[in-house]
Design a protein around this nucleic acid. Structure first.
Lengths: 185, 185
DNA sequence: CAATCGATGACATTTCGTGTCATCCTATAA
DNA sequence: TTATAGGATGACACGAAATGTCATCGATTG
């Protein structure tokens, strides 16, 4: 069966299955690769470690940075945030609420995955910060704006994922931004 | 040399020495325990894993939650945040800028430690969120306020740690809060 | 059909982290 | 002073994570 297509995708699929069947920590890499018809060594060629298999790639930080750079120059930072988050939500998440909720549940149930998830958030902050600096913001201001933007994204994502009424993610984003504006003064 | 005092402290000291001498990932647990005069097994009795040795304990989330609960009832959420952060800064950090900067540098230089550091931040958010819910805030509002508070703390901590002019951490906190108020509308 | 090159397998190894039981130290009381 | 209970440490084994190295397979190209 060598050379069957999409090794990476098969590994991700097998891993998600096993994680929801047995839990994350009870699942070993050899189990994953056995189900995918590959070897342990091959797993670590596609993913730096066992945690990475549950997170996508680095598309989101790249996409976010690109969208920040492309946003209209005259827009205020928080306007940029709103614009970018709406687009990311629409492109990457809207329509995948159930799957997103399932993955979020696996992550929240395991400390090791919470570690990694939290760093992914920080990676996103860094990418956004760099993009805002290139828009001419001062470093500290860029840090704050980037942190605020990813705060909105993260809170809205988890809120939307567990929401039974199926609000759109964009409306949840707006709700969170309104809340921030209300408490910040 | 069995029963020499402060095994935990000796392990932390030996670990920090070795991390700054050789880097974090090049340092093995047996090396740490050899320098501390203990065994590998004992290391893992004090610390859940190799990363934990560089982070304190859980005092800060507990202290923060306690301070939030004790804050005057009539205070607005962001007023509570300011009050609590000023006290934590004064009690736990002021006067230890160099040591803090050294530890932050080790953390920022290693992905595995960045993972853990990011989750520690999330633990702090959760503790603060619970405390705000007990003050009567709605869950979503509590989430946003807690996230904002820890955002201020984290940004101010890293900014203060690398600041050569030795501003007080409380003044950095105020500066960050002012910045947020300025961009959020 | 042969040569080439990337992807995978096979194997060995190091380190992390945990379970288990024996052994040592300290404290408390007789 | 001695006995003993209980917590802390050592000793040992082991599974799983992660990585290095080299062989081997298969598709592509000419």
């Amino acid at each position: 069966m060598r050379w069957a297509p999409d090794a990476r995708g098969r590994l991700q699929g097998a891993a998600l299955e096993l994680f929801s069947e047995q839990g994350y920590s009870a699942t070993t890499v050899p189990q994953i690769t056995a189900r995918a018809g590959l070897t342990t060594r091959t797993f670590f060629r596609y993913f730096a470690d066992k945690r990475e298999v549950i997170f996508g790639g680095d598309e989101i930080p790249e996409r976010a940075a690109h969208l920040i750079a492309e946003a209209p120059e005259e827009l205020e930072p928080m306007g940029v945030i709103r614009l970018v988050l709406h687009r990311v939500a629409t492109e990457q998440f809207e329509g995948y609420r159930k799957q997103t909720a399932a993955v979020r549940a696996i992550i929240h149930a395991n400390d090791s995955l919470r570690d990694r998830d939290a760093r992914k958030r920080d990676d996103l902050v860094r990418a956004a910060r760099t993009a805002f600096i290139e828009r001419g913001e001062s470093p500290l201001r860029a840090t704050v704006v980037a942190e605020l933007g990813i705060l909105v994204f993260q809170v809205a994502l988890d809120e939307w994922a567990i929401d039974e009424e199926s609000r759109s993610m964009t409306s949840v984003i707006d709700a969170v931004m309104t809340l921030i504006a209300g408490v910040s003064p």
